[in-house]
Amino acid sequence: MPEPDSEGWVRVDHGEDEILAEELAALGAVVGGSRRLTRLVAKLMRKNVHEIDLEMPLPFDDAVRRVAKVLGHAGRAVGSMHVEPGVDQETIRVVTSGGAGGMNPVVVTALVTKGGMGSSKVRLRAAAKEGLIKQRAGEKTAARLAGWLSE
């Protein structure tokens, strides 16, 4: 399990690289490409990653439900992980579309942590592979979802 940083946040491991490689391989196979070759190339590509910290004026359980609902509307769930038993943290992960024409898969991970006095903290992380044309799909997706969460 990844170690928490100085603020207690747990950094995402390379699992998102595996998810992105598999998603790109599936897209490549749909258009007649080699799934295996596309997966290999995807693993070598750079990632565009963007993280945004949010304060939500909601109790922890309500914040988790809100984040799960917003991310659920944005994409397909690929896992929900408890960071540590007994700790008021919940991680929600989805794969959504980004980039030109929505053809670039983006892995979005939200870590919801109990804050003080009926509030919660959310660290939103969006990661996408970048090809020759920089689309900044991770940055744009994180900003879009942060806006939806702030509404």
Rank of each mutant, 00 (worst) to 15 (best):
G75M: 01
G86H: 09
V64G: 01
D88H: 08
D62P: 04
E84M: 15
V70R: 03
H82Q: 14
H73K: 11
R76F: 12
V67H: 01
A68R: 05
D61G: 06
M81N: 11
K69L: 06
S80C: 12
E84G: 12
A68E: 06
V67C: 00
R76A: 11
V64C: 00
E84V: 15
V70M: 02
M81S: 13
S80L: 15
A68L: 06
S80V: 10
G79S: 05
V87M: 14
A77N: 08
M81I: 14
D88L: 15
A74P: 03
G86A: 08
V70A: 01
E84N: 09
H73G: 11
V78K: 04
A63V: 04
P59V: 07
S80T: 10
R76M: 10
L71Q: 03
V70W: 00
K69I: 04
V78A: 06
V70E: 01
M81V: 15
K69A: 08
D62R: 13
M81C: 12
V78Y: 05
D88V: 08
G79A: 07
G75F: 02
A74F: 07
P85W: 09
E84P: 11
D88K: 11
A77L: 10
R65T: 14
K69S: 10
E84T: 14
V83C: 07
V64F: 02
A68P: 03
